[in-house]
Simulated scan of single mutants.
Amino acid sequence: MRFTDRSEAGRVLARTLAGESWTDPLVLGLARGGVPVAAEVASALGGELGVAVARKIGAPGQPEFGVGAVTAGGDPIFNEEAMTALGLTPEDMADTCEAERREAQRRLDLYGNGPMRLEDRDVLVVDDGLATGVTARAALREARGQNPRRLVLAVPVGAADSVRALSADADLVVCPHPRTDFRAVGRFYQHFDQTTDDQVIELLNRQH
């Protein structure tokens, strides 16, 4: 199973979500790759499109190896297994957390999406896939603090164990294609070019 691109993945995901009843839906695409997927979902559900930014916290000297994630306004989330394996504590990561928090805020300011009302709405956090789930968890926990009516994580494809684990952070997790052979999100797409900031801004502006 491979999607042509993120837009097709969004349409597949939207068809799965169409069977639910939604109250004033707000669809938050996880920047950046989740936004094209979320745009299709928002269009299909008649919902408002927004953006969520959660930044990976990279290990010291290994920035591509994520040990956690943080949003502009939420507490950092750590992968305890990875932290223990590397002998790290949250205090060790304080400077990195703060740098990534600032970057998350910079991106929110750049996208110009502004503060959005989550209270008493059905809020769907959407990404292009779910690997470890640490960035999705950070976004969900920040959203939960704003009292949504219902909090949903929706991804077109994901690691089956991560899909199960994230059910503790969302009222509903929707994943049409949970995979036990999951290794990387990109292998489930024919075209998986990096989504740019300009593309995110264009998609957000298209809805307003």
Rank of each mutant, 00 (worst) to 15 (best):
F3S: 07
T4V: 13
D5S: 03
V12S: 13
L17P: 01
A18M: 11
G19D: 11
G19F: 09
E20R: 15
W22Q: 09
V27D: 05
A31L: 07
P36R: 08
A39G: 07
E40M: 02
L45G: 05
G46N: 12
L49D: 06
R55Y: 11
P63T: 09
V70L: 06
V70C: 03
A72D: 08
G74K: 02
P76W: 05
I77F: 02
M83S: 07
A85W: 10
L88W: 08
T89M: 13
P90C: 08
M93G: 06
M93L: 15
E100K: 09
E103I: 07
D109F: 11
P115Y: 10
M116H: 12
L118Y: 09
R121P: 02
V123N: 04
D127M: 10
D128E: 14
G133Q: 01
V134G: 00
A138M: 00
E142H: 00
G145S: 06
Q146V: 13
N147R: 15
P148S: 06
L153S: 03
L153F: 02
A154H: 07
D161I: 12
S167M: 15
S167G: 15
V173M: 13
P176I: 09
H177W: 14
R183L: 13
Q190K: 15
F192A: 03
V200F: 03
I201V: 15
L203P: 07
L203C: 10
L204R: 12
R206A: 15
